[in-house]
Computed example of a mutant assay.
Amino acid sequence: MAPRQEVSAWRPAVPGVVEVFHAHFTGYAYPMHVHEAWTLLIVDDGAVRYDLDRHEHGTPHDTVSLLPPHVPHNGSPVTAGGFRKRVLYLDADVLGENLIGAAVDAPDLRDPVLRRRVGQLHSALARPGDELEADSRLTLIGERLRDHLRAGREVTAQRRDPVLAGRLRELLDARVVEGLTLDEATVLVRAHRAHLVRAFSTAYGIAPHQYLTARRVDLARRLLLDGRPPGEVAVAAGFYDQAHLTRHFRKLVGVTPGRYGRPGRTSVR
């Protein structure tokens, strides 16, 4: 089999994510190297064997690997079929240098929930206009990673905070079209990012980005029923573009914006 290399890389507009890197390699092996960023790695097909701090590790399907900054590591495929991986390079401040030692000791995390959340984050990062969702998911992933790295130490559970949740909902309601980043919200309500997301999700049963998207879809429905074209509605309702509107509109309403509200075509409740 001839060596195969497929690579896709981009820098998303999400604080803390330095680079997104997707690759399929068959005959390529990484030499020893270092990164300034945290490397958060999942393998979708095959497996990778790598050395970190002179110890050999591997990446089976249910594993999330977290390689710390400034620590040399390499990487090579385990089988002739190679491997397909998705990587997030996270700014060093996302987890902090005080957890580097813990990551060196235990870089491979067997956590199905974390694995699923990392996959969901990759999906959100690939969709322009879903930056709030990506930022929220990254916040909760960072919290779970810190919990793993603090193994052996008691981790205090986040408590319910309906007052804080209500304050965030008021902010989202006031900024349906222009939107709100987590950094802006934490400054305005003076709360930690992870606690803010958890408090909102606990209080309302929905994540902040899902709430904002639902409000935008509601606004889009009203504008479409006013007779405005989908392309114009997308911008007016706060979506990145018409494709962004169509994806979320079809998910929440069951039809595309172009079919919505046409006499004899769509029934609305």
Score class of each variant (00 low, 15 high):
1 M>L: 09
4 R>W: 10
5 Q>W: 10
6 E>L: 15
10 W>Y: 15
14 V>A: 12
15 P>R: 15
19 E>H: 08
25 F>T: 01
25 F>H: 07
26 T>D: 10
26 T>E: 10
35 H>T: 08
36 E>A: 12
37 A>H: 08
40 L>Q: 05
41 L>G: 01
42 I>S: 09
44 D>Y: 07
44 D>S: 14
44 D>I: 03
45 D>L: 10
51 D>K: 09
54 R>Y: 01
58 G>F: 10
67 L>R: 10
75 G>Q: 12
81 G>P: 05
86 R>P: 01
89 Y>E: 04
99 L>H: 06
114 L>G: 08
116 R>L: 09
118 V>A: 11
119 G>R: 15
120 Q>F: 15
132 L>F: 01
134 A>K: 07
135 D>R: 07
144 R>W: 05
147 D>L: 07
162 P>K: 14
165 A>S: 03
168 L>Y: 03
171 L>V: 02
179 G>W: 03
180 L>F: 04
181 T>P: 02
182 L>D: 01
186 T>H: 12
193 R>L: 01
196 L>D: 01
196 L>A: 06
197 V>H: 08
197 V>C: 12
201 S>L: 05
201 S>E: 14
204 Y>H: 13
218 D>C: 04
223 L>A: 06
224 L>Q: 00
231 G>D: 11
235 V>E: 11
238 G>E: 04
238 G>F: 06
244 H>L: 00
247 R>I: 01
247 R>E: 14
254 G>N: 07
266 T>V: 15
267 S>T: 08
267 S>W: 13
268 V>Q: 09
